[in-house]
Amino acid sequence: MKFTFASLLLLFFGLTAFAPKPKLTTVKLASSLSVGVPVGFAPLPDDGIAVKYPSPRKPLAVFSNPSGRVDFSVAVRPTTFESFDYGVLIKIYKSSIQRLYTKVDFIKEDIRTVNGRDLIYFEFVSTVADSKRTGSQLAPIKRYQTVQYAIEGTQLYVFTFVAPADEQAQWQPTAQAVMGAIVMKK
């Protein structure tokens, strides 16, 4: 029996269509914002957020898996931009992401519509290398990340899913499901 590429491709898509979808729990973060959080993830308390995300502006919420190695966070910041600026902002945010890390390998970047709302979307693997030390160097830290940006009024919402890069295959479907479960009411 001889298989063609098309029949193998059809078989692959047929089998993956029945793959289990990641299970999410809907969490309401504000009257106009709800997100899908992976089952088993727990909210970090304020002191945990302060340790893991030291910043004058703490995230609105952070949810972590039981090991604490994978996070989903939601941050809100003031902005003077509007949603019709997304075409320009995608370039600015991409540049900002590239400045944060030693190396960034983008998997996907676009403006997408999620539950009736346009969002800027990035999916990438980031690397931070210890290049300033002399002698023994620490191993680079690589992370798989998805980030979405949305503007509502004068607020910028930043949704971030972060996992170790070596666990990308395991967490990628969950990250994509989480980013597709964001509901922002106008």
Rank of each mutant, 00 (worst) to 15 (best):
S7V: 10
L11A: 15
L11G: 15
L11I: 10
A17T: 08
A17L: 11
A17M: 13
K21C: 03
K21D: 10
K23H: 08
T26M: 04
K28G: 05
L29V: 01
A30M: 01
S34Y: 01
V35C: 10
V35I: 13
V35T: 05
G36D: 05
V37N: 01
P38K: 08
P38V: 08
V39S: 10
G40L: 08
G40P: 02
F41T: 05
A42I: 10
D47G: 01
D47V: 06
D47R: 08
G48C: 04
G48V: 01
A50M: 06
V51H: 12
K52D: 09
Y53M: 07
P54K: 14
P54W: 03
P56F: 05
R57I: 00
K58Q: 11
A61M: 06
S64G: 11
N65K: 02
N65M: 03
S67G: 03
G68W: 00
V74R: 02
A75C: 06
V76S: 14
R77V: 03
T79A: 04
T80Y: 07
D85K: 11
D85M: 15
Y86T: 15
G87Q: 12
V88P: 03
L89Y: 02
Y93L: 13
Y93M: 13
I97P: 01
R99E: 11
Y101M: 10
Y101L: 04
Y101K: 07
T102N: 14
V104R: 12
V104E: 12
I107V: 14
K108H: 09
K108Q: 11
E109P: 02
T113D: 14
V114S: 05
N115S: 13
R117Q: 14
D118M: 07
Y121L: 11
E123P: 00
F124I: 09
V125M: 05
S126L: 06
A129N: 06
K132I: 04
G135A: 15
Q137W: 04
P140C: 11
I141A: 15
R143E: 14
Y144H: 02
Y144T: 10
Q145W: 04
T146Y: 00
T146H: 02
Q148C: 08
Q148I: 06
Y149F: 00
E152T: 11
G153C: 13
L156S: 09
L156G: 08
T160G: 05
T160W: 00
T160V: 07
F161C: 08
A163R: 03
A163E: 07
E167D: 13
E167S: 10
W171M: 07
Q172I: 02
Q172T: 10
T174Y: 02
T174L: 01
A175R: 02
A177G: 12
V178S: 00
M179Q: 15
G180H: 03
A181Q: 08
I182P: 03
I182V: 09
V183Q: 14
V183W: 05
M184W: 05
